[in-house]
Design a protein around this nucleic acid. Structure first.
Lengths: 199, 199
DNA sequence: GTCTATAAAGCGATAGAC
DNA sequence: GTCTATCGCTTTATAGAC
């Protein structure tokens, strides 16, 4: 993929995080990317095509930094560490007020919201969701290795849906970031305890 | 409030459910309501004012049918009944494929998503959210009367955020309605068990 | 591949009659 | 209160030069 194309996609994620999908103007995107409007139409079919590819791009980027995060084993500072801590970090990763994270969360939320009215976006969305649930279920499995697979998947679906709900509430100003993080942490505890009861 | 005004608000909810806030065109709204565009600007300041009032309208309508639902004590068919059943019904009310409910859920999701970029919508949103959390916390309190208030509120916040996440996933085609309902029911069980452990 | 210039359409909002 | 007509800006998308 050409550098220009990637630069445009990066800029698109930035503009969507700033204005929303509905507020994305090709002109503003062009300015953000430092190119002309026409070049955007050279690289992408139309506005919808651009949105679809931006969604894919955002997903890949999120997977990438989740993987990096997972790879960076925490060198331990006496903390409980281990799989539970890794799970917590993975889920709390999306609840941080860093430009990069906020951008990804906002763009994801916007594109998901758009998919309600634009079925063209759904394929990409479903794919990303499956990967994310799988990832969380695997990490839960490391926390409670004896729990049945179906219970792990159900827990993972609840936790990821909750994460999305909390993220939406944070970004729309209903909840503070601190509250959202607290609710997420509690939920992990509650779900792990639930898996214990199944054994 | 005039009939016309109400008719326009009802039509706005319908159009938002069909096209999203992003897709709402004043012209389409006028057609849906069976009035002229100009009349809409007579009754509402501008597009944003219309959206804000539609959000309030949708919230009131949701409260109304939640209350009706609660009032309709279930005459008992030998089922467990009682407060737990009432809580389940209240939370599952938003996860139903009825035109009316789908319209409300979609409109709520859209308006929340819009609030990320339009702070003018946030007041109405926060208010509705507080009422809803309070309602769920109260019902949880009837299920587990000895649980501390703070735990009830935290559980209620997790359940309502989860409901929103599940609803968003259903409407955007990530989850089937049946799966969303199952996850919601499980979560209620998990949260109630959690409250038990606190005692 | 990339730009400038412009066509073409969309859409919010208002004027003015009734 | 309600309508018809229209303004005028915004925005997507394309033509054509380099």
């Amino acid at each position: 993929m050409s550098d220009r194309r990637t630069a445009i996609l990066e800029a698109a994620a930035t503009v969507i995080a700033r204005r929303g999908v509905r507020g994305l103007r090709v002109e503003e995107l062009a300015a953000e990317a430092g190119v002309s409007k026409a070049l955007i139409y050279y690289h992408f079919e139309d506005r919808t095509d651009l949105l679809r590819r931006t969604l894919a791009f955002v997903n890949n980027r999120a997977e990438r930094y989740t993987a990096e995060q997972a790879a960076a084993g925490q060198p331990a500072t006496g903390a409980p560490a281990g799989p539970l801590r890794r799970l917590e970090q993975a889920l709390l990763l999306e609840l941080q007020d860093l430009p990069h994270v906020r951008e990804n969360s906002t763009a994801w939320g916007e594109l998901r919201a758009s998919a309600v009215f634009d079925p063209e976006l759904r394929g990409e969305l479903a794919l990303a969701s499956v990967i994310w649930v799988r990832e969380v279920a695997d990490q839960l499995g490391e926390v409670r290795p004896t729990a049945p697979e179906s219970a792990l998947t159900a827990s993972a679906e609840r936790l990821t849906a909750l994460l999305e709900g909390l993220s939406a509430r944070w970004l729309s100003g209903i909840l503070t970031l601190a509250d959202a993080r607290t609710r997420m942490r509690e939920a992990i505890g509650v779900e792990v305890a639930h898996l214990d009861r199944l054994d």
